[in-house]
Design a binder for these strands. Structure first.
Lengths: 338, 338
DNA sequence: CGAAGCCATGGAAACGATTACATGGACGAT
DNA sequence: ATCGTCCATGTAATCGTTTCCATGGCTTCG
């Protein structure tokens, strides 16, 4: 592969001049510039990003650690992140943690070894030494979706509380009184927050959330299935199951089907995170939608701000309820427009 | 960040010795080794992958260009690729082409600039100059899922023909005679092959595939919607729509719903690529399932073979029909086990 | 007209690792 | 005792860039 030396030789100039042309340094004569450009073309030269990074100490690359690639919410997020980053001249390397802290740490380590310029993380746990070191160690970092309390890192996320309140009101209006939730891991903010928001919202209607109605999940389908089976085996089973993410809702649907029950006649179902498939499930599923596009863009902007030395801003965007048929008759007052 | 020099100083040895310890070169005294390891620990030293890559001319990184991150088939593939690569000590950088050739080329270019060791591609088009250059230019490369005819690059893919034949037989048995297909872009192998397989299978039953029953899609949901609308507007609308991928099937389902028609009573639907959601759509969708896990593993193995100078092997794995209710009464003889 | 400044250019140092080669000591064989 | 091996180690070159500094020519201004 041709190097800058070959180009210099071909153009009859020094490597310094070639470099200047390539980096559009002003001090280059039109003549030299033309000759260099011609040589670049003739040789099909492309600068070696590895060498450049070594010298400049920047890779123009962002790392993105997502909790699960199979989760459509995160792939939507990844897509918008990549798009926003590309617009700013950055590449993105995605690390899939699969909801496993040790895998998350593996990815953080290799990304740091590669000297990425900044890290976008949706932490899988409450803060491994690895991730805390990275945060304190001066690596530009921004949390997205989930975050770790007590760490001084900007957070870009959606606030689900109002939407959860809307959801509970919606359920209450439809006559449901025994509401259960499948939570995510308590170590994650989205895992605990959604339960709290749910509990608070229930309180507003004079309802309580008994322990038996809190299923412990891990944001993946299987755990939703197991938690739901437990609910269904209860002497007094809940009227509604609210899954804290879309995959656990999928698992819940599986479990309900397996029991031969119907949604919403026998039991209602709702989920956090709206995805295209929810329109087509049987029945269409009521969900809380996050603005993934905006989230991704805001996260990249915040991270690039940190990288380039500007004061970054934490951002909180609203989530909204999309009512469909899985909780009872379509709520005409708030019907999805899809 | 500590460099190898700092470690050398701390341990009281030369950088060469540190390097030898880190690369487990045999010629190092136990004493020196211990001191180096202690220094590494004390400083929290991690080798700079950029510098190492520059010197050794290898990055231990694979590039994976997928056609669309929002397509669950490709994310499943990406996941298995990353897993297999990790097991062999490689990282993976994913590039999302979004079914746009120019975006695919952008990613190929930046991956090559980063000097990845090898490239796994599921081409979005029939072969841009970019991709052909890369192939001829000596970059280790393997096609996965889709490929480009006439280019000497190993291919890892699933053969859908027998499964398509099974599908058509299944449909015929259920009484369907007017079968339509939503094809992918003709420039992609999976785009054209699936149509051919479908046409051939129809032929075996004495049926033909009129032009009006071939919808032109681009593997994304919207195109499935549009193609289906056109089918439904036909004076003699088809009995069945077979979508060449899962997203177009989603679009087709949208269009059918919008028309107020029912599946399968008014029109049947089947798709290439099985995904978890198909179990839960209304109705559950009959699909052709590919072994994504095996595909990913085989692709990585083939690519690493090329990289390490072993003779690589093209691999073709079987796909299989998973019959559900979207084409008519559950085919008990071949019912999904999910 | 001479000093000062500027511009285009080249030489060479640096970035952080790996590795070819040199060196010197220990040890075994003759 | 001498020579040759082998081992542990260090010195320095190298990978492909960027960039500091020096240089020499030209312009400009007093």
């Amino acid at each position: 592969m041709a190097s800058i030396k070959d180009v210099a030789a071909e153009a009859g100039v020094s490597v310094a001049t070639v470099s200047r042309v390539l980096n559009s340094h002003p001090s280059v004569s039109p003549d030299a510039r033309a000759r260099v450009l011609a040589a670049v073309d003739a040789l099909g030269y492309r600068p070696n990003a590895v060498a450049r990074s070594l010298r400049t100490d920047q890779t123009r690359t962002l790392g993105l650690i997502i909790s699960d690639v199979l989760n459509p919410y995160f792939t939507a997020l990844a897509r918008s992140v990549e798009e926003a980053a590309r617009a700013l001249g950055y590449s993105v390397i995605i690390g899939n943690a699969d909801e496993r802290p040790e895998l998350q740490d593996h990815h953080i380590r290799t990304l740091l070894d590669r000297r990425i310029d900044g890290l976008l993380v949706s932490p899988t746990d409450g803060g491994s030494p690895q991730i805390l070191d990275a945060a304190r160690g001066g690596t530009p970092m921004v949390f997205v979706d989930r975050w770790i309390p007590g760490v001084d890192v900007p957070v870009v996320r959606a606030d689900g509380c109002p939407a959860v309140r809307d959801l509970v009101a919606h359920l209450y209006r439809l006559g449901h009184r025994r509401l259960a939730i499948i939570a995510g891991p308590a170590a994650t903010t989205t895992g605990s927050e959604r339960v709290e928001a749910f509990r608070d919202a229930l309180g507003e209607h004079g309802l309580t959330l008994p322990d038996a109605y809190i299923g412990q999940g891990d944001f993946q389908a299987d755990s939703g299935r197991r938690a739901t089976e437990r609910f269904l085996a209860l002497p007094e089973r809940p009227d509604v199951v609210f899954a804290a993410d879309n995959l656990m809702a999928l698992g819940a649907l599986d479990a309900i089907r397996a029991r031969g029950l119907r949604v919403p006649q026998d039991i209602a179902l709702a989920a956090f995170d709206d995805i295209p498939w929810f329109v087509h499930t049987d029945p269409p599923i009521t969900a809380i939608a996050q603005p993934t596009g905006d989230l991704g863009r805001a996260a990249v902007r915040a991270l690039v701000d940190v990288i380039e030395g500007r004061p970054p801003q934490s951002v909180t965007l609203p989530a909204r309820l999309v009512a469909r048929r899985s909780c009872g008759e379509p709520a005409s007052y708030q019907r999805s427009n899809l």
